[in-house]
């Protein structure tokens, strides 16, 4: 199995805060890894490095064979989906979300299927996000992202707002997608145990 993500000697720091020094790691296709560690250690920042939102001071990043730079960033992002932390997006319904993501009919159908699998089918497409819980909103956003069917899944604190039952549904959903490469951040033990590998920050 080839590597999907390869990071070499990543040095990243913010004023007064060292995130990582000479960090190297590889993630193979179909593997799931988790950046773990206490809050404020820069786990989300490392995901942002992979998406090209933060440029590290030094280091090389290759994603699916492409060297991450300004010429390749659009192609690299097209291989990814990203569930942001808290999913605190200014979006009010699943319908609006599918419009914003300009989903085609096939993607909308998959969106419904993933809503089913993640246990948020009853929220439907029209229900306002103001009327549902943070965990439900997070699962709807994840269902929308998964329906886009891209090979790399970036999950920022995917279980922070979920109860045990919802976490099990999430595991079952991800298990049905064995060829996807998952990079996540979490300090939840259940999630860390689920992932193949953990990188402690």
């Amino acid at each position: 199995m080839g590597n999907m993500i390869k990071c070499e000697k990543i040095n990243l720091s913010f004023p007064g805060q060292l995130i990582c020094k000479d960090l190297s790691f590889e993630v193979f296709a179909g593997e799931s890894i988790c950046f773990s560690g206490p809050s404020g250690k820069g786990k989300s920042s490392l995901l942002k490095v992979l998406m090209g939102f933060i440029t590290p001071q030094s280091g090389n990043i290759q994603i699916d064979g492409l060297e991450l730079n300004s010429d390749t960033i659009a192609a690299i992002r097209n291989k990814m989906i990203w569930l942001p932390q808290n999913s605190n997006l200014p979006v009010d319904s699943a319908n609006e979300l599918s419009d914003l993501l300009q989903m085609n009919a096939e993607q909308v159908e998959r969106f419904q299927q993933f809503q089913d699998q993640l246990g948020v089918r009853e929220c439907g497409f029209d229900k306002s996000f103001a009327e549902i819980s943070g965990g439900q909103k997070q699962r709807i956003v994840l269902a929308a992202c998964l329906s886009l069917d891209k090979p790399i899944i970036l999950l920022d604190e995917p279980v922070s707002a979920l109860d045990d039952h919802s976490i099990d549904l999430l595991f079952a959903t991800l298990n049905s997608l064995p060829d996807k490469t998952i990079v996540s951040t979490s300090h939840n033990k259940k999630w860390i145990d689920y992932c193949n590998r953990t990188i402690e920050l």
Partner: peptide
Amino acid sequence: DLYYFLLVNG
């Protein structure tokens, strides 16, 4: 956040 969300997922 929305712009960056759409930039990656869109």
